[in-house]
Amino acid sequence: MDILSPTLLLSFLFLFLQPPITAANSAVYTSKTTFFSDYEKMMTNLKIFIYPTPNHQQYDSTPFSLLHNSLLASNFLTHNPNQATLFFLPFPPLSTRSLDRHIQLIRTSFPYWNRSLGADHFYFSCQGVGPSSSRNVVELKKNAIQIACFPVPAREFIPHKDVTLPSFSLLPRAVQNEGVPTRLLGYWSFAEVQSSVELINGFRNDGEFLIEFEPSDEGMYVERVQNSKFCLFVYDVEGLERLSVALAQGCVPVVITNRPMQDLPLIDVIKWSEIAVFVSSNMGSIELKKALIHTCEDGTYEKMRQLGVAVTQHFAWNESSPKPYDAFHMVMYQLWVRRHSIRYSKWKIM
């Protein structure tokens, strides 16, 4: 009997590990065929070289640590830059001047930056890179792929190349059981939300909604989410962690925003419109309630709930042992599809 080649064996392993796709959950992907085909190519071919950190500084950040440690333990890592598909620039928060010096050091010490003006490089920065007239910082911001945290500050995200991390919550996935009745139509746990005061006040005396200042106990928050059909969030205020918890617990997110969102995690892989409701911050409470009731009555709610639960496999960080299609691999996939991002051949001051 012939021995399978490593490549063929990996292909069989990929097919074995691939999650079952059914008519019920395939609708959540922008392109199911392209996604799984590209994912398989990524698992086989993606190689990443990591540059040394500036002055051996440590980056004390939970999302960065999850990403960095997972990459170090993965098969994507290569110590031979000539084999690299992409190059990772790990650096702690730096002043513009320090960042300029660091990129200049990379430019002069290695030959790889100048080949593409940084377009096959990526870096992590929750807050983005501020404005600068420095050639090095401008090329970093315009060409290199930024891995950011949702929501990204205005003007710090370039949709065609940048990505946002899936939730970095390590909470276990405790999916709501089928058939468990929910008491509430909607739940809204808010902090300081000045832009939605009227909407908040409109629900305060409605018995089908629970509106409260965010609970200090995480277990209580999860219980509230489990007992609600819809969970309300304000874009630019709420972090992704709670939105991910809502999806995992079968509570359909209602995202309140007054502008288009291009920085949603996995936005080029997942159809967010299939798992969340997006409404204007100018919508009144009566109009919003009618819309949510209609979503329940026409069967859309149950479909969204099931898809939301299914997609949370892509938001789970498995720090000790990354698993196929988890948050780490989805970040790697997004880097893979951006390896041919638009490159700027000329330097222009922003």
Rank of each mutant, 00 (worst) to 15 (best):
N205V: 13
L105F: 13
L266T: 05
L199V: 03
R101K: 11
S321N: 13
T164P: 02
E156S: 15
P151V: 09
E218Y: 15
L9I: 07
G239N: 10
N282E: 13
V255C: 04
N82A: 14
A84Y: 06
P92I: 04
K323F: 03
A291Y: 09
R204P: 07
V138N: 12
Y39R: 05
C231K: 01
G299Y: 09
E214P: 07
H68I: 01
V309L: 13
I342H: 12
E218F: 14
T96R: 08
P322G: 01
V331C: 04
M350L: 15
N258S: 08
L99N: 04
L8Q: 11
V331G: 03
A154T: 15
M42D: 02
G128M: 04
R115S: 15
K289E: 13
T312L: 03
N318E: 09
P54T: 08
V309Q: 14
A276C: 07
Q249P: 01
E40V: 01
Y235P: 08
Q127Y: 14
P159D: 11
R339H: 09
I200S: 05
I270V: 15
E208Q: 15
V237N: 13
L66P: 00
L165W: 00
Y59T: 08
P181H: 11
Y29P: 05
V237K: 12
E287W: 05
S195F: 02
L335I: 05
F278K: 05
F190R: 13
Y123A: 11
V138W: 06
N69V: 07
T30R: 12
N45L: 09
T78Q: 06
L184Q: 14
Q57N: 14
Y221W: 10
S61I: 02
L94G: 05
V222A: 13
F122P: 05
S134C: 11
P166A: 00
D298F: 12
M332R: 04
L94C: 03
F233Y: 14
T53G: 14
L71V: 06
V175E: 13
H68R: 06
L171V: 05
S65H: 06
V337A: 07
A276L: 02
E192R: 09
I48T: 00
G284I: 15
V28H: 05
F35A: 06
K290R: 11
F230R: 02
F209Q: 07
D217P: 00
V277F: 09
E178L: 10
K142W: 14
S341I: 12
G128S: 00
L10V: 10
I50D: 02
S95H: 08
D268G: 04
S61V: 00
Q146C: 09
I275Q: 04
P265A: 03
W317S: 00
H102A: 07
S228G: 02
M220V: 13
F230Y: 13
